[in-house]
Structure formats: C-alpha cells, structure tokens
Nucleic acid binder design. Sequence first.
DNA 1: TAGATTGTTAATCGATTAACAATC
DNA 2: TAGATTGTTAATCGATTAACAATC
Lengths: 221, 221
Amino acid sequence: MKNDRISMSVIRRLPRYYRFLSELNANSIKRISSSELASRMGLTASQIRQDLNCFGGFGQQGYGYSVEQLYESFGNILGIHNCYPTVLIGAGNLGRAVASHISFESKGFKLVGIFDNNPQLIGTKLKGIEIQSSDNLVDFCKENIPKVAILCLPRDSGENVAEKLINEVGIKCFWNFSHYDITLKHKDVIMENVHMSDSLMTLCYRITDEERAKNATDETE
Amino acid sequence: MKNDRISMSVIRRLPRYYRFLSELNANSIKRISSSELASRMGLTASQIRQDLNCFGGFGQQGYGYSVEQLYESFGNILGIHNCYPTVLIGAGNLGRAVASHISFESKGFKLVGIFDNNPQLIGTKLKGIEIQSSDNLVDFCKENIPKVAILCLPRDSGENVAEKLINEVGIKCFWNFSHYDITLKHKDVIMENVHMSDSLMTLCYRITDEERAKNATDETE
DNA sequence: TAGATTGTTAATCGATTAACAATC
DNA sequence: TAGATTGTTAATCGATTAACAATC
C-alpha cells in the first residue's frame, strides 16, 4: 500500500467508495470495472482509477477489480478495524442521537464514556454506558486515555472543553458537532466537523438562488 | 448583486462567513479588512476578496468592509429571511435531535409537519407539532405544499420516501440524513446531504493514516 | 495629500479528465 | 490471439494566490 500524502478531495471520497463496495459485495457482485463503478457512483472512470491508484494497484488489466478484495482493502485503508476509545461530551438531544444512531464499532471506534453537566441526565444510561458528570471528565481521561472526543455541545462550551481536553489530557482527535470552528490554533489536532447548521444554510442558499434564477428568466420572457 | 453561477467551493464557504460576521457584529466591531478577516478565519485575504466579489463590491478602498452591512448582505444572499415550509420525515433519535437542536426560523425554514410510522410516536408532540402517521404524508403534502423535506430515516426507506415525494408531490429540495445517496437520477433535485457516518469514517482514516505515518518514521529511526 | 485597502487581472497550483501503452 | 480494461502520463480545467492599478 503506497501512500505519499493523499489529498483531502480523495480522502473525502473514500467512505462513499466503501459504501458502494459494501453494497456490491452484499449483492454478491464479484467483479466491477472502473467504468461500471463510475456510472453507478456518478463519477468518471478516470477519476476512480486515479483514486484507487493512490493506494496501490488493485485491478487487473482486461478484468477490472475484484469487489470483495477491493472492499476489504478499503476497510483496511480506512482503518475500520481499529477500536479507538472515544468519549462523548454532551448527552442532550444531539448527543443521544449520535450515540444511538451511529455504529461506532463498525467504523473503528468504541464509546467508553459519556459526560454531561445536566443533573437530570447524570446516572442515567445511554447505549449501556452511564452518563457521568462533566466534573469527572479530566480524571476519567487521565485514567482511561481516550483517543477521540465527540463534542455535542452548545456553542461556547465547545471551545472551552476542546481546549481543556487538548491541553490537560492531550486528546488530539475530535468529532465536532458544535457550531463554532474550534482550533485554528492547534496545528497537530485532527478535527472533523459536522456543521449541520452550515449544511442547512447552504441548502437555503441553493433554493433561494434557484428561485432568483427562475424569477430572472420569467422577467426576461 | 451580480451572480453568474457561483461555484460550489464558494457556496460552501458562505455559511462560515456568515457565522464569523455575525460574531463580529455581536461584538460591535464596525469595520474589518480582508486581511484581518482572513487571519481570523484561516483563509487568505485574496480569497476573501475574490469570494465577496462574486456577489458584488461590498468594500471601500482604503477602509475595508462595514461588518454590519456585510453581515446583512450575506443574510440576504443566503436567503435567511425566507420561510420555506418544511416537513420532517422520521422522528426517531436523529429526527428528534434535528427538530429540537436546529433553529429553522433563523435559517429560512419553517417546520410544518412531522411524520413517522412508529405507532408509539404518532400523536406525541415535537417542537409543538404533532407527529403524524407516514400514511398521511402524501395527502398532507398535496394540501400544504411544503418546499423542503428532511429525511431522517434508516437507509432503505430513505430512497423510497424520496422517490415518492419527488414523483407524487413534486418536492425538489431535500436535507438528507439517511446513509445512502439518493438520486443520481433526478437532475433538478436539490439534495443537501449530511452523511454523519462518512464524516466519522473520514476521521477514522485521518487518525489511522497519522498512526501509520508515525510508525513509519519510528521504524526509519 | 499619503496610506490603506479594495476590485480585478494575471500567475500558479491542484484536481479532474483524456489518452494510450502495458498487460491480463 | 483478440478484446477488455487497467495503471500512468499528459492535457485541461477550475480554484487559489499573487500582484497591482484604482480609489477612498
């Protein structure tokens, strides 16, 4: 497996490849060509071959790619078989949805602790894990050394908690659902943002822009 | 406001600009230069000036940009003052989190109906709206003509419901949380995906890749 | 006026697409 | 062998950065 710094554009396509391969595999499809996969995924065959060749030559000239082999390789590339210990911070609506909706185990993670500062939630269980007071967070982390923290917090506290985790317990990997962009400062931190509000605003722009375009042509007619 | 088809790269930066401007405005900062904004946002001044000039000349040479004016303009560009009627489909963990966590009104949307097919949920309320049976969905839409549908469904049903909404009631705008890529088919559909699982897998890749790089240099030493 | 900072054009960089020789 | 399809190099396209004249 060669790997000379893969570009983010390629990296962001990997999970989608994995999904399609998983589906093909589940449907017992044995082989696929770059052009067949391209038409299914709405990409070009060229791009698929370029993407795959970032990681090695998986294909066979004249034949294509073995779905099963490719699927497995992609799992390894993504690191799906890891078990990175992970803490969830914030067990409000969003935190609970994330905890119950996402299959951590099949994606390389393991939930080991959940924290909130709402007394009503402390002591209750979520995914079989007891929700602890945020006061225990630092001590828990020092003892259990999680690799990843999921931030499901309202805006301001997101930044504070992240800073604390970075500086006091050395967590460097975050899955961030809080609205604000934490950390332009820490260059060595891996921060994966899920900015749902940004996505919704983008949708608003796209709809509004289309309406504007429609009105403009109406006027021209 | 000029607008000759804005590229997706620019569009996806708009909500982030809006957030930063909102913050600056809330802090009563009156003017800002492209270079000051660039350093705060981790972009280049050049890019900011290019981006803004997609929509018009908001600045003043020698002075910079008026925060308040720019903030307001961006609100208009994004279409934040619209009130697109929106239905939420799926009121499980994720649907409930989305409904309660997101401020639709401040982003150009209005929740008008919620649907689920779990009998336990039907009749209960969420954000003041009674959850209805999915059986009512088509009739409701024919009567109320929502502009947007939010899909918070498990994988397969996502595709089915989307197809039904597109074909039977003519909905063309979707905020999609379901795992699978609906619609490569419908070219005129606006689909904004929030693939949380993909984001988590990307995080897994980035962590795993870093570990691999670390091990590689360790071995070289 | 002098200094600052924009709007815009030109240069560079990166990502996607096309082409084709290698080979199963 | 002939046909298919890869891996890879070259060409194109788009996005970002740099430069600078215009101007507040």
